[in-house]
C-alpha cells in the first residue's frame, strides 16, 4: 500500500476510534432531518419541492458547521504531533514530508465525506421518500460541495498547523479564520455595499469579492445554481449576468483546497522537526 494511504488509513481509524465519525454523522443527520421537516413548515407546500427547501436550509447550516469541524480536525495535525513528540519518530521513517500532509488530508477528507454523505444523504432519502425527489441533483451538489468546503478548511487548518510553533496558537488562529471567513466577511461586505448604496468599486467587483472566500463560493454554488432552489433562497432576483457560472465556482472551491494545501506542504518541508 502506498505510504500516503497507510497514513490516511491511520487518520481515518483515529476518527473512528475516538467516536468523532459517529458523533459527527449523528449530528449532521439529526440537524438535516430537523431542518428538512421543520424548515418546510413556514413555506407551506404550495408547489414547493421540500428537497429544494432542505438544500437551502442545509446549505446555511453547512457554511457554519463544516468549516468548524474541518478546522478542529486539522489545526492539531502537525503542531500537535510535534508537541506530543510523535512527529519526530514518524519522520524518521522512510517517507517524504508531503506524504504526511497528503495522508492526513486524505484521511480527514474521507472522515468528512462519510459523515456528510451518511448524515445528509440519509436525511435526503427520507425527505425524497416523503415528498418526492425533484431537486435530487441540487441535493447531490450540496453533499459534494459540503465535502469540498470541508476540504478547503482542512487545507487552511494544515497551513495554520505547519506555520505556528504552539498548539494553542494554532487553535486560536483556527477560530479566528473561522470567524473571519464564515461570519465577519459577509457582514463587512454587506455593510460596505449598504454604505456605498450599491455603487462604486465594491459593487462592481462584487462577484469576485465573493470568490475570495470559500464559504461564499459554497453559498453561491448551492443557492444560485439551480432554478428550483433559487426561488427559495432569495436569490431569484439576482440578475443573470451577475451570477458566476457553476464551473467557475467549482474551480474557485478547488483552488481554495489546492493552494493552502500546497502552501502547507512547502512550509512543512522547511520546518525543523
Amino acid at each position: 500500500m502506498p505510504t500516503v494511504l497507510i497514513l490516511a488509513e491511520k487518520e481515518f481509524r483515529d476518527g473512528m476510534r475516538n467516536r468523532w465519525l459517529l458523533a459527527t454523522t449523528l449530528v449532521l443527520l439529526a440537524l438535516a432531518l430537523g431542518l428538512a421537516f421543520l424548515g418546510s413548515a413556514p413555506v407551506g407546500h404550495v408547489g414547493a419541492a421540500p428537497l429544494a427547501v432542505a438544500v437551502v436550509s442545509l446549505a446555511s447550516l453547512t457554511v457554519f458547521l463544516l468549516p468548524l469541524m474541518a478546522l478542529m480536525l486539522a489545526f492539531d495535525a502537525v503542531v500537535g504531533e510535534a508537541e506530543r513528540g510523535t512527529l519526530l519518530l514518524l519522520l524518521s521513517y522512510p517517507l517524504r514530508r508531503w506524504q504526511v500532509i497528503a495522508g492526513k488530508f486524505l484521511g480527514h477528507t474521507a472522515l468528512l465525506l462519510v459523515a456528510t454523505v451518511t448524515g445528509y444523504g440519509g436525511a435526503g432519502l427520507v425527505v425524497a421518500a416523503a415528498a418526492g425527489g425533484e431537486a435530487a441533483p441540487a441535493f447531490a451538489v450540496l453533499v459534494a460541495s459540503s465535502v469540498a468546503l470541508g476540504a478547503a478548511f482542512l487545507a487552511l487548518g494544515y497551513l495554520i498547523s505547519t506555520v505556528v510553533r504552539e498548539r494553542a496558537t494554532a487553535a486560536g488562529l483556527a477560530v479566528a479564520v473561522w470567524l473571519v471567513l464564515v461570519v465577519l466577511y459577509d457582514l463587512v461586505l454587506l455593510g460596505a455595499l449598504a454604505a456605498t448604496r450599491g455603487q462604486g468599486p465594491i459593487a462592481a467587483l462584487f462577484p469576485w469579492v465573493l470568490l475570495a472566500n470559500p464559504a461564499d463560493v459554497f453559498r453561491l454554488l448551492n443557492l444560485s445554481g439551480f432554478a428550483a432552489v433559487r426561488q427559495f433562497s432569495g436569490l431569484s432576483g439576482l440578475a443573470a449576468e451577475q451570477m458566476l457560472p457553476p464551473a467557475v465556482l467549482a474551480a474557485a472551491l478547488a483552488a481554495w483546497i489546492a493552494v493552502p494545501l500546497g502552501l502547507a506542504t512547502i512550509v512543512f518541508g522547511r520546518r525543523a522537526p
Partner: peptide
C-alpha cells in the same frame, strides 16, 4: 528518540503494525 512518544489511543499491536507497514 529520547523520551519516545506514541499516538496514545492506539494499542501496542496496532502501533507496531502501523510502523511495520511504513517500513514495508
Amino acid at each position: 528518540p529520547e523520551a519516545v512518544a506514541f499516538p496514545e489511543a492506539m494499542t501496542g499491536a496496532e502501533l507496531i503494525a502501523f510502523y511495520a507497514r511504513l517500513k514495508r
